[in-house]
Design a protein around this nucleic acid. Structure first.
Length: 768
DNA sequence: TGCGTGCTTCTTTTT
DNA sequence: GAAGCACGCA
């Protein structure tokens, strides 16, 4: 018997040994899911299965890398290098590049990230003269993405009565046209968006059975992590690939499905038995991570959801601490409470900073928490947020790389044609783009024709455009062959980006310059380590992967001793000795977008479950009575989720007392706070100080001045009143909504149509 | 063509 | 409170 099998419990071992045929591993939180997966793959390799015949799909690059490292430790790096292990997106992008000719794409296709897609959609909507208020790029992209994830192509979309009806119902009947144009533009630009990577893989396999057969033969064994988070498109790819051998092992936990918003189908895991009737089921129910209290509290929460696979997650660790509820007056105080408790525990328990995590629902919450930690000199590391790769300067440089590799890439072209400034302004660019559109060309192809066609650009501008193009073309010659880091650096220099940023001595400019340096160093790292098949990657490999990378894929600080700040979503798969869960307020968590819809509310509750189960030892849940949103202080109501926890797992009578005072009624008056207890541990903040601070905040919001109009009081604006606007002239107020000064007034001006003005800013004068 | 200013909108979560 | 957009001026 292999020695590593002895490290597993009975069920884990059986799951590891079930190599042939379909198997479903339901893995409760903290039940050793990753261990089962890694041991299983290692075991397969030890039994003589060739690593190149194994396909292992994960949802993050990080998960893939960690698993690969562990396997490499068990079976050696050489062997592990042949494994096909990675995210759906990255592995199928690889296959699509290889088989590009079958689907009419160049193998050097670009990958549009969300921002590129949105920009393209905005452009299209503008061309179609669609109201941007109605056709918000976010929503339109959401529709298209949803369609793609359900294998509905633009053509199908246009011909689908139901979809068209539902769009009409949502007052956006033109989405099908946007989709068609969007798809055509992407194709012309030799670009795919995230969803295309999965959709085109499906199309490839459907249209070319021989290609599918090739990969079925190659991937004799398929493993899928986080199966509950697969969408329909991913589900189908797996189904097709597994069809021949049926050696499919999926691992997941329906209770931790938190990505329905981007198309994940919890049914995939619930229906596994229908698709693979002869499957073996393994339920990992023992939680090795958390104390009894935490596991039981989490169970008491998830019990409130209807739709789930029955399981009994239990812990054999000690009971441990009960959950503490922290009530703060404001979001800032919430941060202070957390920072203070971290200091206290670190001192009393000798815990490291890295033993702590602060989790929250939205990235926007991180700023205030950061502030509080900084004030106490607590080092922290923040995950997610604005990804490194989303920063302007990084995207700019990457756009150069992209355009060099794929000159058809319009989004990259538009981004850098005049950055750094080379005298090609919007007017000229628009002429070029119009010309391109009329002739169904990419911007690059259109620009080539400028030599012979006159579209009303001055010869000076044409010359500048062609200079730009030869800059790009020159690099195209060496990007494949040149040493990656040096080539990248040369591009940064010759494009003028490095100089531009170097001359900017503002703190932001300096930080941008450093980011570019960091990116270049990242390229050095990436290209000096060996890739999957033991080949050294070049710059092209880097660029083709980079759109699929996230922050976590580059962080060097991971070994440092720091408190971890992240959204609950990015905390999935992680564990921490002490966890703080911040911002447990109605409309924030659960999000106001979810609270009206049962299935969305259940997803939020699963998210809450995920958050609770990250904690090994101590769990703190906090909420604030007042919080800044939209730059305005507003009242908050404690989250219903707090009451979903069975009270026996929550600490102190006082907390329960406070819980009973939860009410939908907003608590405005400071007087009411008098008898409330705050559970601050050894916090330095006194109630008196809190009151003072709150008073200040209260006063400052009550008298929020009208910035541009401090002398005139616009609170008297109501329907029917005549007003005068500095720019638009006189008009009549049609409707008024919101609380002054954040009042929105819809005004019909004599000169030009209706306008919605925010009184906070509007330069208005009441005439009647 | 570039830049400053005023105004609007945005926020759920991410590969 | 930030980022993006439109407008108007130099």
């Amino acid at each position: 018997m292999y020695s590593y099998l002895k490290e597993l419990n009975e069920i884990q071992r059986l799951a590891v040994e079930a190599i042939e045929g379909p198997s479903l591993v339901i893995a409760g939180a903290g039940s050793g899911k990753t261990r089962v997966l890694t041991y299983k793959i290692a075991h397969m390799l030890n039994l003589g299965i060739h690593p190149a015949n194994i396909l292992a799909l994960t949802f993050t690059n990080k998960a893939a890398r960690e698993m690969k490292d562990r396997i490499a430790n068990m079976v050696g790096e050489k062997t592990a290098a042949y494994l096909w292990m990675g995210t759906f997106h990255s592995l199928f992008a690889k296959i699509l590049r290889f088989e590009a000719k079958y689907i009419g794409y160049p193998s050097n296709f670009s990958i549009y990230d969300t921002q590129d897609s949105k920009n393209l959609i905005k452009t299209i909507c503008k061309e179609l003269h669609l109201d941007p208020q109605v056709y918000k790029s976010n929503e339109v992209l959401g529709r298209i993405s949803y369609a793609k994830n359900n294998l509905v192509t633009a053509k199908n979309y246009a011909n689908n009565f139901q979809i068209r009806e539902s769009d009409k119902h949502g007052r956006k009947p033109e989405i099908y046209r946007i989709y068609e144009i969007y798809e055509r533009r992407c194709k012309n630009a030799g670009a795919m968006d995230f969803d295309d990577l999965l959709l085109k893989t499906n199309i490839l396999f459907d249209m070319h059975p021989d290609v599918l057969k090739k990969y079925q033969e190659k991937f004799k064994y398929i493993l899928v992590d986080e199966y509950q988070d697969t969408n329909f498109s991913q589900y189908l790819i797996i189904k097709k690939l597994a069809l021949a051998h049926q050696n499919l092992c999926v691992v997941g936990d329906d209770a931790q499905s938190i990505y329905a918003f981007r198309g994940a189908r919890i049914e995939n895991i619930l229906n596994f038995k229908k698709d693979y009737p002869g499957f073996k089921l393994f339920k990992l129910e023992q939680n090795y991570r958390s104390t009894k209290n935490i596991v039981n509290a989490a169970n008491s929460v998830i019990k409130k959801n209807r739709n789930q696979i029955q399981k009994n997650v239990f812990s054999e660790k000690e009971h441990g601490n009960k959950i503490k509820i922290l009530e703060a007056f404001t979001d800032h105080e919430e941060g202070h409470l957390i920072a203070n408790i971290i200091s206290d525990i670190r001192y009393s328990e000798h815990d490291k900073y890295s033993d702590f995590a602060v989790l929250y629902r939205t990235n926007a919450q991180s700023r205030i928490l950061e502030e509080a930690l900084r004030k106490k000199n607590i080092p922290y590391r923040i995950y997610g947020g604005l990804s490194f790769y989303q920063r302007k300067e990084i995207k700019d440089l990457l756009a150069y790389f992209r355009l060099i590799i794929n000159p058809l890439d319009d989004e990259a072209f538009k981004r850098i044609i005049n950055y750094p400034k080379r005298g090609i302004g919007n007017t000229s660019l628009n002429k070029l783009l119009d010309f391109a559109r009329e002739n169904n060309l990419s911007a690059w192809q259109a620009a080539i024709k400028l030599a012979s066609v006159n579209i009303g650009l001055s010869s000076a501008v044409v010359k500048k455009i062609h200079e730009f193009m030869s800059l790009i073309s020159n690099f195209a010659g060496i990007i494949n062959t040149g040493e990656a880091y040096e080539t990248a650096r040369q591009i940064a220099v010759q494009s003028g980006i490095l100089k531009e940023l170097h001359n900017d001595k503002t703190p932001e400019g300096i930080s941008r310059y450093e980011n570019i340096q960091e990116l270049l160093n990242g390229i050095k790292d990436f290209t000096s380590t060996e890739s999957d098949e033991g080949i050294k990657p070049n710059l092209v490999d880097y660029i083709q992967n980079v759109s699929l990378l996230t922050n976590e894929d580059k962080d060097k600080n991971k070994d440092k001793d720091k408190v971890n700040l992240m959204t609950i979503h990015s905390a999935k798969g992680l564990e921490f000795k002490n966890v703080f869960l911040a911002g447990l307020e109605e409309d924030l968590f659960p999000s106001k977008f979810s609270s009206s819809n049962i299935s969305e509310l259940e997803e939020e509750r699963r998210l809450f479950y995920v958050a609770i189960t990250r904690a090994e030892n101590k769990l703190f849940i906090s909420f604030a009575r007042k919080r800044y949103r939209w730059g305005q202080l507003s009242d908050c109501v404690p989250s219903r989720f707090i009451r979903d926890i069975n009270p026996e797992f929550i600490e102190t009578e006082d907390a329960m007392l406070s819980m009973r005072n939860f009410s939908k009624k907003r608590t405005n008056s400071i007087g009411n706070q008098e008898n409330k207890t705050t559970f601050t541990g050894n916090s330095e903040i006194t109630k008196e100080a809190l009151k003072q601070k709150l008073k200040k905040l209260d006063n400052s919001t009550k008298t929020a001045p009208n910035k541009n109009n401090s002398t005139k009081n616009l609170s008297g604006i109501k329907e029917g009143v005549l007003v005068n606007h500095q720019r638009f002239g006189t008009g009549k107020v049609l409707a008024v909504e919101g609380v002054f000064p954040n009042t929105k007034a819809t005004i019909e001006f004599e000169t030009g149509g209706k306008k919605q003005l925010l009184l906070k800013y509007a330069k208005l004068e009441i005439l009647t």
